[in-house]
Computed example of a mutant assay.
Amino acid sequence: MVTDSYPVTAADVVRIYRYLLEHAAETILSALAEATEAGTDGFRQYVGIPDAANGLPWAVKQGWSCCRPARILHTSGLVGEGNRYVVVVLTSHPASVTDGVGSRRVTAVVSALRPLLGGGTS
């Protein structure tokens, strides 16, 4: 159980992706590569990695919630040919921040990383 005393960190999420890659978890990785633009609740989940990938292949697991007490928007996944890079951006915004503003902020973080991911900038 995750509590305030033991939060999940970006490094923890990176370890999960490395485990999946090392153990050839193709079923899971394929599902992440087929993430739809809208979640089952209708939330637009192509923020962060999908919006900033600019033609690079990606496989993602997104996360969002609001507003107890903050707006949470996460993007995590694999980017590049052969799932070369693991990218994890975990964010917390004041509840007053809209989904649109928060989503643009998350995408801006990944866009800033884009030159490091190969294939030019977004």
Rank of each mutant, 00 (worst) to 15 (best):
S30G: 12
V60I: 15
A112F: 10
A10Y: 08
D51T: 01
V8T: 15
G39C: 13
A52D: 00
C67R: 06
S65N: 14
G77M: 10
G102L: 14
S122C: 15
L20A: 14
R68D: 09
M1W: 12
E22C: 15
A70E: 05
A35L: 08
S122Y: 03
R71N: 12
G119R: 06
L20I: 02
V8Q: 08
T107I: 04
Y6T: 15
A10M: 03
V109C: 06
D4E: 12
S5K: 09
N54W: 00
A11Y: 01
A24M: 01
H74F: 11
E22V: 03
T75E: 05
Q45H: 06
R68P: 14
V106R: 03
I49S: 00
R114T: 10
L90I: 07
S96Y: 13
V89E: 01
R18V: 04
V47S: 05
S122N: 12
A33Q: 10
V101E: 14
Y46M: 01
A11Q: 14
S103A: 15
P50G: 04
T75R: 09
A52Q: 01
G82H: 06
V97Q: 09
C67S: 10
G102A: 15
L113V: 04
E26Q: 13
A11F: 06
C66E: 12
L113W: 06
E26C: 03
T3F: 11
A59L: 11
R44Y: 15
Y85F: 15
R71W: 09
L32Y: 12
Y17V: 08
R68F: 13
P50R: 04
A52P: 04
P94C: 05
G48D: 09
S103H: 07
R84F: 00
C66M: 06
R104W: 04
E34G: 04
G102S: 08
S92R: 11
Y85R: 00
R68M: 02
I72D: 05
Y85N: 09
S30T: 15
R44H: 12
G102I: 02
E34V: 00
L29A: 06
W58E: 06
L29W: 02
